[in-house]
Design a binder for these strands. Structure first.
Ligand SMILES: [Zn+2]
Ligand SMILES: [Zn+2]
Ligand SMILES: [Zn+2]
Ligand SMILES: [Zn+2]
Lengths: 236, 236
DNA sequence: GTACGTCCAGGGTACATTATT
DNA sequence: AAATAATGTACCCTGGACGTA
């Protein structure tokens, strides 16, 4: 780990060009930098964090003189939590450096993170009226998105207050859906015309929106959505 | 803005002895001047920037009446991203003041450290590995993604180390692309077969993958990718 | 000087593996 | 044996330092 500032650069102790790996001050294992104030390994830092978060109090099970003196090294560090935590504190790990627990990083079981569908049911965006997804809403997969799609127009109207944001953030998805759904019930080209006035051109490609627009216009002269044919002829 | 270093701190405008420390309008922490239109701290301004760049949409995990009302102050601001971002917007942080991401500050020292996933998702629009778009890569918009598509197979091979995660996280997009691209150069059905063995069924819809699989099989019996026709007949 | 940006150490969480009950 | 808890690796997020127009 390297501490940097304009004034000086402090590197981990080194001899010549070779960096010495600084061992964990608690167990002697290889450290991965400083944690809670001291050089420590991932194991000890994780152990310390969990102990602090849960306010754990451990008891050393050794008897007599050995009590509280269990050896803490890489191979024995899990033998006695009481002595491990004690050694963390004696090595001057700082309990105040442990932060509050944070909220979950990814929403439950939803790994896709950046798709239109997620956006529509998430924070700040009004839930779709029951008409569109009557309770209990069936789980929506990519296939239901395509073959039983709510009208994009309906979605956007329901999300009226957030329409502008949605369009900006979801442009890629809307574009794809436009190509797939191919529906005359929603003319994305007018949306594009409206919003491109306020969108900043991408540096290096100022004509992106014009091109998207042109492509969609070409499409709109073609056949009706092919999913209609598919869904009646081949599916279900 | 406040200039800080270990050596000295220069505070902003003061009148007489009184400092005009304007607090962060989002969390109340000490602000470091205006960011994106409002006085805000480094934390909130960085958070806002990252959220906009990556088109993040967060979910408040609170239940019932508390939903969307998590307290946002210096010590709790990391507890709920959804409510923090909501508060940024309500404090009138301006998303249009967030600029396009720039290139790396110093091209020296090729760092391979960042994950493929990060490089693939910049500004919400997938970036392509350097192999496919040798420098200087043209900006990729939705239209180029569709009409000059790199082979998905190539993408996945280039991202070999990250293949599994990519497929998991991008499934919806891949599925849409499959419908749009319709390419025989990549058989997503085999991908699906491979991965569904290791994917946990979604609670409430254990047959999702079988259904997706079936739909794609139906599609694969149909015509060649229509974008080929389009791009040769109607475009450019 | 201001207010954009990037960089990165050291916080965090997720989850497969291992240990314990 | 199954359920539960703890561990440690892999990766994500935060915010302060610093670069730049
Ligand atoms: Zn250790
Ligand atoms: Zn002990
Ligand atoms: Zn703040
Ligand atoms: Zn919340």
């Amino acid at each position: 780990m390297i501490l940097k500032s304009r004034i000086l650069t402090i590197r981990p102790v080194s001899i010549g060009d070779r960096l010495l790996d600084i061992p964990c001050k608690v167990c002697g294992d290889r450290s991965s930098g400083k944690h809670y104030g001291i050089y420590s390994c991932d194991g000890c830092s994780g152990f310390f964090k969990r102990s602090i978060h849960k306010s754990r109090v451990y008891t050393c099970k050794a008897q007599g003189d050995a009590k509280g003196k269990c050896p803490i090294d890489k191979t024995h560090r899990n033998q006695c939590r009481a002595c491990r935590l004690q050694k963390c504190f004696r090595a001057e790990m700082n309990r105040d450096a442990v932060q509050h627990e944070r909220g979950p990083r990814k929403p439950k079981g939803n790994k896709e993170g950046s798709s239109m569908l997620n956006r529509l049911s998430l924070d700040g965006v009004p839930r779709l009226p029951p008409i569109l997804l009557p309770p209990p809403p069936p789980p929506v997969t990519a296939s239901t998105l395509i073959f039983q799609p709510p009208s994009l127009l309906q979605i956007l109207l329901a999300a009226e207050k957030y329409q502008f944001r949605l369009v900006e953030e979801s442009w890629k998805d809307l574009f794809l859906l436009h190509l797939v759904q191919w529906s005359h019930s929603l003319d994305l080209t007018s949306l594009l015309s409206t919003y491109k006035l306020q969108l900043k051109p991408q540096p290096g490609d100022e004509h992106a929106f014009q091109r998207d627009h042109h492509i969609m216009q070409v499409h709109s002269t073609l056949l009706p959505p092919f999913y209609c044919t598919l869904s009646s002829d081949k599916l279900e």
